[in-house]
Design a protein around this nucleic acid. Sequence first.
DNA 1: GTACATGCAAAGTCTTTGCCGCCGG
DNA 2: CCGGCGGCAAAGACTTTGCATGTAC
Lengths: 154, 154
Amino acid sequence: MQVTKNRNPNMNQNMRMTRQRRVILEELKKLDSHPNAEEIYEAVRESLPRISLGTVYRNLEVLSELGKIQKLEMGGTQKRFDWDTRKHYHIRCINCDRVDNAPLGFMKNVEQALYGATDFTITDHRLEFLGLCPLCMEKAIERDSLGKTAGKVA
Amino acid sequence: MQVTKNRNPNMNQNMRMTRQRRVILEELKKLDSHPNAEEIYEAVRESLPRISLGTVYRNLEVLSELGKIQKLEMGGTQKRFDWDTRKHYHIRCINCDRVDNAPLGFMKNVEQALYGATDFTITDHRLEFLGLCPLCMEKAIERDSLGKTAGKVA
DNA sequence: GTACATGCAAAGTCTTTGCCGCCGG
DNA sequence: CCGGCGGCAAAGACTTTGCATGTAC
């Protein structure tokens, strides 16, 4: 069961900005995409070849708990990370899993629609669009024109 | 990478409704919640003690590919399943992970807001509300009144 | 020194898969 | 027979964690 983990209530707000953490943060901003831990690991390894994947996971967790980055729990199985901590929505390619920001303003009022209609205390919401990215769309068209119609796009 | 899996384009639309599949379907409807595979497994085991978890996973996959049930990819790590195949939204308790339907009609038009603003071909969207279920809310209040303020609600 | 970080490997969680025997048409 | 199906265990993908060592104040 994955609960919002706030295990360490006394976590130091001024945690040490170690070299590893700084590089992770830099790479995340540089990538300007929505990478998963593995991708960040690969990027960081170029400047810190001896960093471990465990450290990357640990620090992504720390950084997101302190609000320096945002952890995205998308529909898929992997968590992704976003340097942009503002609330916003995403689009995910159902074929290649690429994630972009959705060009749609954050809907501040949707949650109000549930007031009185549910006994949950709503605190947040998450909206994710699904579709095909331009590249996969193109491949899908090519493929369809060849008469093949099902399964993952090549 | 989890892509919408449609691996078997020739899957028989009239798959055999075996005893295992029937019981899985029945239990899912009976539960009327949004159980994960493990919970379904436990429920099904009462009538079919020798069923395996692998079979449950396989059949949930088959049933959802044939549109008999809906596979939910919520924010968390586990997939959940819903007997109601109509498009609708959910609320998830951030403390105990309970999932309810959200009392909000499906927004047929949100996707249109992206037309022209993205080069993705949007095909779907998913909206999930987060909050505390009544039980966890109550516990949180009790706990807060004792002066403890952080971490997972007991 | 002390407290927190890191590297490494092991373990954990959830899900998928290979194999083989079984069952129904 | 044949093809799909189920049980079982092993493997896979992703993430967390225990432990000894390092490092910064």
